Simulated scan of single mutants.
Amino acid sequence: MPGLSVIIVNYKTPQLLTDCLATFFSGQNQENLEVIVVDNASGDNSQEIVTRAFPRVKWVQMSYNAGFARANNEGIRQSTSDVVLLLNSDTLNQHNAIEQCYRQFITSDYVACGVQLLNTDRSPQISGNFFMKGGLNYLLPLPYLGSFIKWLGNVVKVEKPNVPDSSALVEVDWINGAFLMVKKTAIEKAGLLDEDFFLYAEEAEWCSRLRKTGKLCIYGQYKVIHLQGESANEAFGSSGKGYYNLYDRKGFQIMLSNFLRIRKQFGVGWYLVQLAFYLFAIPVFFIASFFGNAIRLRNPFADFGMAAQFAGNVGRLLGFTPRILSNKPYFYKVL
């Protein structure tokens, strides 16, 4: 049937979810609207809180913490509309952006779209991205080495791998999974999200397949607040925004998922190239932090704890490498 199915994955974030739904239901035209919450075995009172406040919500209960891809796939399977919106629970609908986006999208030739995501201070977040050869943008978060690579890219004028801010329609290669609207006709051709992923990078890999069926875009004139990283940080006891955390448990999940995507989308060669950079970044981190702190008259060993955490995560990645390279189905969940 025509209409929109909004799929929101919940894991122990009932307050974020109710705040999200409050902004959503207050503006959205509810005709031909389906809202599906897929709960990843939160084990709390999320269902009671949410369904009491929003009785129209269809609650789908997973028996385990299935992560982003598997939970969204279950929501897609149970949806009845021609268009699905994968929406993070830490988003806030602004000025009825979701409905306006849907109305423009449904009459377009695009197979998937997003909107301009904003921080709470209304500064822009990266919402649309372009594929870089071999996923080389994953080198940018590397300590010290990443800053040098970014500087070098600016010197040689390498095109940026993302759209930092958009105010109108921009065609992109992949869309931030916090707000990803997709036509079912494209999903039927491209397939569902890859269920090897637990969390992070799955939307980029999925968009690489969706893009083979048609064009993707960002409608920059529509804005949605995204409390970036809040749902994952709250659930997993981590901190920091974006994908520059490579040091704790959440950081290792990010690293592992990124490398899984590299293997699936770009192949074995690029996987090994990136792995070599990550290994090289370990001694760079220790040496650069030592001399950098010493020059600033600080404790030269101050950052060695963080460097050791980074080295430990790279070591764990090495342990997963034979399995990833084999490309056999496996659930890469470490959180």
Score class of each variant (00 low, 15 high):
residue 1 M to F: 12
residue 7 I to G: 05
residue 7 I to Q: 06
residue 8 I to F: 08
residue 8 I to C: 13
residue 9 V to W: 02
residue 15 Q to D: 14
residue 23 T to S: 14
residue 23 T to E: 13
residue 23 T to N: 14
residue 25 F to N: 03
residue 27 G to V: 01
residue 33 L to H: 03
residue 34 E to V: 04
residue 36 I to C: 10
residue 37 V to Q: 09
residue 38 V to C: 00
residue 39 D to K: 01
residue 51 T to I: 15
residue 52 R to T: 14
residue 54 F to P: 03
residue 55 P to H: 14
residue 59 W to Y: 15
residue 60 V to M: 07
residue 64 Y to M: 06
residue 65 N to Y: 09
residue 65 N to K: 08
residue 68 F to W: 09
residue 69 A to W: 05
residue 70 R to A: 11
residue 74 E to R: 15
residue 77 R to C: 02
residue 81 S to P: 04
residue 83 V to Y: 08
residue 85 L to Y: 13
residue 85 L to N: 11
residue 90 D to S: 14
residue 91 T to G: 11
residue 91 T to V: 04
residue 95 H to D: 13
residue 97 A to R: 05
residue 98 I to N: 12
residue 101 C to F: 11
residue 108 S to I: 04
residue 110 Y to E: 01
residue 116 Q to N: 10
residue 120 T to D: 14
residue 120 T to V: 01
residue 125 Q to P: 08
residue 126 I to N: 15
residue 130 F to A: 06
residue 140 L to R: 10
residue 143 P to T: 04
residue 145 L to D: 09
residue 147 S to K: 15
residue 147 S to Q: 12
residue 148 F to V: 03
residue 153 G to Q: 15
residue 155 V to S: 08
residue 162 N to R: 00
residue 162 N to Y: 15
residue 167 S to W: 09
residue 175 I to R: 01
residue 177 G to C: 06
residue 178 A to W: 00
residue 179 F to Y: 15
residue 180 L to G: 09
residue 186 A to N: 09
residue 190 A to T: 05
residue 192 L to F: 13
residue 196 D to F: 02
residue 197 F to M: 07
residue 198 F to A: 07
residue 202 E to H: 11
residue 203 E to S: 09
residue 205 E to Q: 03
residue 206 W to D: 07
residue 207 C to K: 04
residue 209 R to E: 11
residue 213 T to N: 05
residue 216 L to A: 00
residue 217 C to Q: 02
residue 221 Q to S: 05
residue 223 K to M: 05
residue 225 I to S: 02
residue 225 I to R: 09
residue 225 I to E: 09
residue 231 S to P: 00
residue 233 N to Y: 07
residue 237 G to V: 08
residue 237 G to N: 15
residue 241 K to N: 11
residue 242 G to C: 10
residue 248 D to C: 09
residue 250 K to P: 00
residue 250 K to D: 01
residue 252 F to N: 06
residue 253 Q to Y: 09
residue 255 M to W: 03
residue 255 M to S: 09
residue 258 N to T: 12
residue 261 R to D: 02
residue 265 Q to H: 03
residue 266 F to M: 11
residue 266 F to G: 07
residue 267 G to A: 09
residue 273 V to H: 10
residue 276 A to S: 08
residue 277 F to W: 13
residue 281 A to G: 03
residue 281 A to Q: 07
residue 282 I to N: 03
residue 289 S to Q: 01
residue 294 A to M: 13
residue 301 F to D: 03
residue 304 F to Y: 14
residue 304 F to E: 00
residue 309 Q to C: 09
residue 309 Q to P: 01
residue 310 F to K: 11
residue 312 G to T: 13
residue 316 R to K: 15
residue 318 L to R: 08
residue 318 L to F: 03
residue 324 I to P: 04
residue 327 N to C: 03
residue 327 N to K: 12
residue 331 F to M: 07
residue 332 Y to P: 00
residue 334 V to R: 01
residue 335 L to K: 06
residue 335 L to C: 03
